[in-house]
């Protein structure tokens, strides 16, 4: 198992290198903007542009720039380790910015994940156990609504109704626990969590229902029932364990993806997380910021994949890694 994990971690490294190199290439082959021109002002004389290019380190060949970037990541830069570089926009170190924004995205993603699991999985189970009942139909109606309601629509509607009109919940913005306490933090996160979780909850409910219905028709479930096991044990121990394995896979991937930034939710609710930062950085051609967010997003997804694969070994006794 240890050898397997080490091998997978090495692959994570290779994947990250490939992704960042591709990002680098895309930036230079199809630059969304020319940062050196933007930061030379309204009258970008060739001399100013050249000086900006030099200060941003854009005057070297692309391959050299990339090599320096990789070197800084591993060996650190003037702002410490890992060397995440500086922002063209603010001329400040990116590390604290990325760190703070990652924490916000993490809180958003984890809270939403808890919510969609707590809502989605039980709904799926209840639906599966009572297929075609009123409960099942209601649950699947909810799932259809959740899956088909886009966040960029639901978010502003919720803000309008629950904050602007009714005043039941506070408006947008991030209020940290450290500064404002758990209560303020929590009430400000309710809407972002709910909006982000809805689509996932609906999807997880459908997936759980489908899997469980399929598993409950398996021979070993009939055997379990024939042995006289109580229905609760049959469902919880034999049915759920098998049917939730794909759910774990999905959870890992979804969470990994969200850690790279839940762009729309962050933007609508003014949560200044990584997704939001990625957009801002692309608009202004803030190269190192784009690369840093890319690395985190890619790392989160690849790491989540690894964790899912490891957890599989514990959930499914047939899976063994060497």
């Amino acid at each position: 198992m240890i050898r397997y994990i080490v091998r997978r971690l090495l692959w994570v490294l290779v994947t990250l290198l490939l992704i960042t190199f591709l990002t680098y290439l895309i930036f230079f082959v199809m630059p969304p903007v020319h940062p050196e021109v933007i930061f030379a002002g309204k009258q970008p004389t060739p001399e100013l542009v050249a000086e900006v290019r030099r200060q941003f380190g854009l005057d070297k060949p692309v391959v050299i720039q990339y090599a320096l970037f990789v070197k800084r990541i591993f060996l650190g830069d003037e702002y410490g380790w890992p060397g995440l570089g500086f922002s063209f926009n603010t001329r400040s170190a990116l590390k604290p910015i990325i760190y703070e924004r990652f924490l916000i995205t993490l809180q958003l993603a984890l809270g939403a994940a808890v919510l969609w699991l707590v809502v989605g999985v039980p709904i799926g189970i209840l639906s599966a156990l009572r297929p075609r009942s009123i409960l099942d139909r209601l649950a699947m109606g909810f799932a259809l609504f959740g899956v088909s309601t886009p966040v960029f629509f639901l978010g502003p509607v919720m803000l309008y109704v629950f904050w602007f009109k009714l005043g039941w919940l506070p408006g947008s913005g991030f209020y940290s626990i450290a500064k404002y306490g758990v209560g303020t933090w929590f009430v400000h996160m309710i809407m972002p969590w709910s909006v982000l979780a809805l689509a996932f909850a609906a999807f997880y409910a459908r997936m759980t229902r489908g899997n469980l219905i399929e598993v409950m028709g398996e021979d070993y479930i009939r055997t379990a029932r024939a042995k006289g096991l109580p229905e609760r044990t049959v469902v919880a121990k034999h049915g759920l364990r098998a049917s939730l394995t794909p759910v774990v896979t999905m959870l890992g991937l979804d969470l990994g993806g969200l850690l790279g930034g839940a762009l729309i939710t962050e933007t609508v609710f003014n949560l200044q997380g990584l997704g939001n930062y990625a957009v801002q950085s692309v608009f202004s051609g803030d190269l190192y910021a784009i690369l840093d967010v890319t690395i985190i997003a890619a790392f989160a997804v690849t790491l989540a994949n690894l964790i899912v694969d490891i957890v599989y070994a514990f959930l499914d006794p047939r899976v063994r890694y060497t």
Partner: peptide, 9 residues
């Protein structure tokens, strides 16, 4: 504030 509509609200 990243949400322009929110600013005006």
């Amino acid at each position: 504030n990243t949400n322009l509509d929110d600013i005006y609200n």
